[in-house]
Amino acid sequence: MAVIQVERKPLSLLERTYIPQIVGGLRTTLRHFFKPNVTLQYPEQRPEISKNYRGVPTLVMDPNGREKCVSCQLCEFVCPPKAIRITPGEIAADSPNAHVEKAPQAFDIDMLRCIYCGLCQEVCPEEAIWLQNQFSMSGYTRAEMVNNKAKLYELGGTLPDPHLKWDHKKAAAEHGNGH
């Protein structure tokens, strides 16, 4: 790398008084004075959250409104701070989702423990748990900071994923060419 010695020009008398520089600075700041504000009025205006953002872990449904979680408890197992607590449950035989293996009876994520590592999403075989764009998690009590199943689905919503794995499996079983 070539080193270029730049000759430092001696300051002129006017420059040594700093006055032109100060006036220039004042002009710059005055321009900012009249510029529109860049502040976001937060609770009313929300920032645009990137699709890649990984916030609060949530549970999602498939397009048919079936909960995707099959309570395999892999996320509970992998969770480093042990924030997830799942109580597995059976699906009633008369349910339209009876062909699905299982569903969680209770699903709690303690947000006071969660470290937003995303391992639950990583490990989920059903793509049922997602870290989504929810970034602000607050409550007045400890109990409020534990997201139960209803809250998790409310936060999560529906995953627009046309790949309906369990329906394909059921159809295949009915047509006799199951895997």
Partner: peptide, 10 residues
């Protein structure tokens, strides 16, 4: 207020 306006804040 003036500090804020000079810095583009409300």
């Amino acid at each position: 207020k003036i500090s804020a306006w000079l810095q583009g804040r409300p």
